[in-house]
Design a protein around this nucleic acid. Sequence first.
DNA 1: GGCCGCGTTAGTGTATACAAAGACGGACGG
DNA 2: CCGTCCGTCTTTGTATACACTAACGCGGCC
Lengths: 210, 210
Amino acid sequence: MKASERAYAILLDDIQCGRLPAGAVISEVEQATRIGVSRTPMREAIGRLIGAGLVVQQSPRVTVVADIDAEDIRDLFDVRRALEETAVRLASQRADRALFAALADEFAGAHPGVDADAYYELIARFDAAVDAAVANAHLVSALRTLRTHLVRVRRMARDNPSRLAQSVAEHRLIASAIAAGDADLAAHATHVHLHNALTTILESLQEEPS
Amino acid sequence: MKASERAYAILLDDIQCGRLPAGAVISEVEQATRIGVSRTPMREAIGRLIGAGLVVQQSPRVTVVADIDAEDIRDLFDVRRALEETAVRLASQRADRALFAALADEFAGAHPGVDADAYYELIARFDAAVDAAVANAHLVSALRTLRTHLVRVRRMARDNPSRLAQSVAEHRLIASAIAAGDADLAAHATHVHLHNALTTILESLQEEPS
DNA sequence: GGCCGCGTTAGTGTATACAAAGACGGACGG
DNA sequence: CCGTCCGTCTTTGTATACACTAACGCGGCC
């Protein structure tokens, strides 16, 4: 494996998991010695993170982990609505219907209160199925960069059990709509889902703005 | 100016203007000596182009300028519809209405048949005004990477005069809708505009698939 | 005592040297 | 004559050394 990829993967994980919190300064030499690579691959890794928008050059001399405030989250969800509604519309036209019918059944039988990790894994599989169905490299690429930011957002605002239960029903409806080839329903259900998700996140942020 | 930025700007321009056509191999040393920089900043420039999707690593040993076929263009326009409809919706809610009323007037008085460059410059100003109005860094960032690809598409399919004239009317309607704060009209007019643009491009590509 | 200026230092930007890996070509064997 | 294997060579990946710049601190001067 390339040293630059290792450095990128480690730094990305550190940022997404909060080990490198917002505002933390990213020094090339410091991170390079920590990861155990040279400055050259570390610069490449940091460059990719800058390109993704997870770190920003605060001044020509100091780069820091990008901050995320409520306004950022609203902005991210504007983009997310645009891209995911488009994605589920395209998936509704092109998807293997049996696959999404099966996913809808899995959502019907999901119990996030019992095993949250299994539920998150199911959502990841659902997202991957949508990505495969849309068969649009540019759209999937945009969604991927979006998700790198959303991982941090999700971490900032811990889901509560009632929200998770509601989320199951919303995902089930979206999967069913795609299985039925109903693009409008899939898009509108996604809109509702993202509206509820954003509302919950902003509420939980107001309670504990850590 | 940083050498890596110079290299990136030159390479980007070379790709967008067709001097480096699709499929052209990008050798680090060759480009570095041509531009007059070292391999290190050249690597950074190529890395950014890979991140933007303008060049791809065909094999672990050879990177080439990304190809654009009709399918790619359709995919790009799916993303473009999603992002630009969202952008004009947000602009309709937040924009300085007088500014867009003035832009609508400029479109009303535009004659692309007489001075095409002035018309393209007007469109660029319109796009910049929309970007400023949406005030959403993530959305604008996604639009920017999209536009780097669209420059190549526009170059592949030369606009014909009648299409340009129609485009003026479409832009004028979008600007008027934003000025009136009519988000639905702005979004639908944008949808129509992009549908017509895509149709024209695909037609001109079928005539001369150079 | 405060402010301005110079020196030092830390840290990034760039160049280059070295290493590794894959591809091409030539030669040898079947 | 063809296929395969080995060697070389090109190209990328990585490390390190050097340069430049900006910021911080210290000292002198006002």
